[in-house]
Design a protein around this nucleic acid. Structure first.
Lengths: 124, 124
DNA sequence: GATTATCGACTACAGCTGTAATCATTTGAA
DNA sequence: TTCAAATGATTACAGCTGTAGTCGATAATC
């Protein structure tokens, strides 16, 4: 999967989540998996079209309809998003970001244990 | 400082950065400190007005002009932004976020050392 | 075969965002 | 005193976003 060409909006990201969980899917399947949003099927189709335009979702014909698949992995997207935020807010430094999570009670003991293991691994 | 009422856009955030660095400031001072953006002073004033509308920036009269100050601290804003991202992408878990930074070469030795100290502190 | 449901393409429209311009007023300068 | 510069308020306008509707074609159903 290649470069995230364009900005993905919030609603579009909800659609991406569905495709990241399973793909390829037809528009109607995507809509079904987003039922808790109670979006009109038209809305889902518009979002899919925009994602295709932005080249982050690809299509393959299936009869007279399309099946949609992500062209950008969730990993790639997440990496970009995290990096963008740290650059924007903390001059690229990571520690303040974790410190902010800690400060807002955002770290469970489990999180802390995971982080500890991760740090140990990063030190080789 | 209180709750971040509304969404702050990218350009607006550039303005907030200036006010977070120093405040109160007049619009012209803000514009001056954003010279590398080569924005028209009108643009800066529009952004300031929108931030005031959104109640994240306050004003005090100074003669016939205003002096602007943040009503939301950078800390508060950053905390919200980090939390929002982790919730959206990782179900609220922090470790994957740090792992993503690591994966994209985003962690210097210094970062890792800082994180290690932070984790130690978090464990009491 | 006739009607209905569904599909993709195109269009709509309001609110947000980036990027200003205009206007009436005031203030500072000549 | 007169005129230019600067101010806040209001307005502009295109592109993005959320949330659909319309249309012509096709597929599925009766």
């Amino acid at each position: 999967m290649s470069k995230p060409s364009k900005q993905i909006s919030q609603a579009e990201l909800d659609v991406m989540d569905v495709l990241w969980a399973q793909s390829p899917l037809a528009a109607s399947d995507v809509a079904e998996r987003l039922s808790e949003k109670s979006w009109n099927i038209r809305t889902v189709k518009t979002l899919l079209s925009r994602l295709v335009e932005k080249q982050v979702v690809g299509t393959e014909p299936d009869g007279r309809r399309f099946l949609y698949s992500p062209l950008v992995s969730k990993n790639t997207y997440a990496q970009g998003a995290v990096r963008k935020l740290t650059n924007r807010l903390f001059g690229g430094r990571a520690a303040p970001l974790v410190a902010h999570l800690a400060a807002s009670d955002g770290l469970s003991d489990e999180d802390i244990a995971e982080l500890e293991a991760l740090i140990k691994a990063l030190k080789q």
